[in-house]
């Protein structure tokens, strides 16, 4: 390649660089037939290819999203994620104030749903005044069921499991646990972001 940015034919490598990204250039017919331009484009394309190789090498070196580096980032993040309302707990001493965060209970509900074979949690809400001890609370959970699992049976199993867990881990007065199946998931095969057809509308 030349030391100058401008080729013998008068076009510049800067123009070819932009052409590579946008497909636009003043004189496309010339570019198609000019050996200088074609050589310049080939060189730039080769560089792009190397760039993609560097990217895959860097991504491979970055490790998996399930590795420790990401786990420690996520552990830190949890502290920042919306804690929600503070749910009071009975204390043994009037001077003390004890709480569970709403976020901790929602996460618990989701983990129960996620741990049940064939189901994954979606939205989860505690309706009612959780900040007042003894107030009636309704739990709303949306779940996705993996294709092939009977929905009614999965929902009933989850309702039972949640009632038991919430009775042990909270002091909430649960009036009802409403479970809605909002999605059916394909059985395991790698999902691509382009498959986003099952998205629900709010």
């Amino acid at each position: 390649m030349n030391t100058s940015d401008t080729l013998e034919c008068g076009h510049s490598l800067a123009e070819l660089s932009a052409y590579l990204d946008t497909g636009q250039i003043a004189d496309p017919v010339h570019v198609e037939t000019c050996p200088e331009c074609q050589a310049g484009l080939a060189s730039l394309r080769h560089l792009s290819e190397l760039g993609r190789e560097l990217l895959s090498s860097d991504v491979a070196e970055a490790g998996s999203g399930t590795d420790d580096w990401m786990q420690s980032i996520l552990d830190n993040l949890r502290l920042e994620l919306r804690p929600g309302r503070s749910i009071p707990l009975q204390s043994g001493n009037p001077q003390d104030t004890l709480w569970e965060t709403e976020g901790s209970i929602s996460a618990l509900i989701r983990s129960v749903a996620d741990a049940l074979p064939g189901t994954a949690a979606g939205k989860c809400r505690l309706h009612g005044d959780v900040t007042t001890p003894g107030a009636d609370i309704t739990v709303e959970v949306e779940i996705a069921v993996v294709y092939g699992h009977p929905m009614e049976e999965r929902a009933a199993a989850l309702r039972q499991e949640l009632a038991e867990t919430l009775a042990v881990q909270t002091e909430l007065t649960i009036q009802a646990i409403n479970i809605t199946v909002t999605d059916v998931l394909e059985p395991p095969h790698p999902a691509s972001p382009a498959d986003a057809t099952t998205e629900e509308q709010p």
Binding site: L79, L89, W99, E100
Partner: peptide
């Protein structure tokens, strides 16, 4: 906490921010 601090008067605030693994 209260027991550890005795006889000093204390008011303890405990928040459970996570339940489970």
């Amino acid at each position: 906490v209260r027991r550890h601090l005795l006889p000093r008067p204390a008011a303890v605030d405990v928040s459970v921010v996570k339940v489970g693994v």
